[in-house]
Amino acid sequence: MQTAFTLLIFPGLGFIVLCAWLFDWLDRRIIARFQGRVGPPWYQPVADFIKLLAKEDILSTGINPALSTALPVLSLASVLTVSLYIPVARTAPVSFEGDLIVVLFLLSIPALAYFLAGWISGGVYGILGANRSLLQYFSYEVPFLMALSGPAILGNSWRIAQIAQQQVGTTWNLALQPLGFILAVVGLIGKLKRDPLDIPKAKSEVVGGSLTEYSGRKLALWHLAMDMQTVLGIFLLINLFLGGTSASPLWGGLGFVLKALGIVLLLSTASVLYARLRIDQLANLGWRVLAPLALMQLAATIWMGG
């Protein structure tokens, strides 16, 4: 009974889905306010989801229907599995030494599924979007992984819950590894394909990217998977850099909420400020700027910890 509650309600499926919609609404609202607009009402993400569920599911000829359905389900499943390992209320449902590595591995499955989705779509926009998403993956993933390894090396543990606990009461990893945090945020923007790194799904260039041919329920699942990935990415960053949830339930919970809001604000601000990068500019940035910086941070961490 307790397990079912954890898996389905809190902090499992129900909680993550609600957070996904909440964060999406916050994001759109913040961006709108920056741009001098009002922004959508709180129920907009829910309405969008329900609308997509009700739409016709068009399957173009030549697309393998089983594969086309399997990919968003695979994305969703891997993201949901990640939610088991990330502590929200001080403990994660499943926690063991090395679960950070499992999480990082699972978080790269949606990127690969996104690539495959475009590849099998058979349309030019899908193939272009798929190629770009893979190129983008290679540009941000290495600095991202290196940045996220920093807290693990510093805390001498590869267990997310433990890394989070170690920061409670002492300094946050954010203060010890500021560069790592910035690189992790940039990597997260790339992973979530948000502006200014929404190159694979740039509307003015590749129409819809990999998901051009998707519609109806499957598209709803894709969007849900991506929104949930946003939430879990933010939670991961909070646990690794911002001290997780502290001891007392009230202040701990409030602190967690504030930290989440802070990162959402950071991500939304980045969306508003910059034009979309070109894929070659991103590759340049990733390998000539981010990766060396991540290496420097990693070297500094190892030297500090040793």
């Binding site: 508003v272 034009a275 979309r276």
Partner: peptide, 8 residues
């Protein structure tokens, strides 16, 4: 701006 991804 819209076409370059700078909606602002």
């Amino acid at each position: 701006g819209k076409n370059l991804g700078l909606d602002t």
